[in-house]
Simulated assay, not measured.
Amino acid sequence: MELTGSKFEGELQNGRMEGHARFTFPEGSSVFEGEMKDGMFHGDGTLHFPDGGKYVAKWDHGRVVEGRYIFKDGLVWERAGWDYCLGDDRRFYSERVGGIRPAGESLQTNTGVLPPIPQGCFDTGAGYYDPNSSFLYSYTGVQQRKPEKDEIDWITKHCRIQR
């Protein structure tokens, strides 16, 4: 696994990952914990993502048979019956659970905490746009990509600017 940057903790049979295991993807981007067979996810297992979300599923030779995604805040996504953030209902999950706050105390994020961004930059919800460099950055300041003109227009029209 040294060549790929991934890490495996578990049993090997005939040189293949087998049984209960913990598999960490390169650079710790995600972690799988669960059953493996013949080097593939097989049986019950959970993929943990860096943002705190996780995908809990039943696997069959590397393919999902059934599963659900659970966001960091506990919101559960399932293919059937999903009605969150559809149509005119744009409430945050915490507002659905705990109710909408009084006027003047409205949430701008699900947690109520705004991520810190540099002055003059726009909060995109997944990072920020810096009009001086014309690049999108993660909230940790890592440069991501240069957006197209129509995306820049939308960001500067709709996103919160740090003054």
Rank of each mutant, 00 (worst) to 15 (best):
A57D: 13
L3G: 11
F49E: 06
T46Y: 01
G43P: 01
K58L: 09
F25R: 10
N14G: 10
P50G: 05
P26T: 08
E27R: 15
G15N: 11
M17P: 01
G10Q: 03
K58Y: 10
H61E: 12
K7F: 08
G39C: 06
F41P: 08
G10Y: 04
S29T: 12
R63G: 04
R68N: 12
H61A: 11
K7I: 10
K58S: 12
G43E: 09
F23Q: 12
G67H: 11
V56A: 10
K37T: 00
G15V: 03
A21G: 15
G45W: 04
G52L: 07
R68K: 15
L12W: 14
K7M: 08
P50L: 11
G28H: 04
A21C: 15
G52F: 11
F32R: 09
L47F: 14
S30E: 14
A57C: 10
S30I: 02
R16W: 04
E66Y: 12
F41Y: 09
S29P: 01
E18C: 05
V31K: 06
A21W: 00
H42R: 02
G34L: 07
R63K: 14
K54N: 13
L47E: 12
Q13H: 12
T46H: 02
T4K: 12
G34K: 05
P50V: 14
G15I: 03
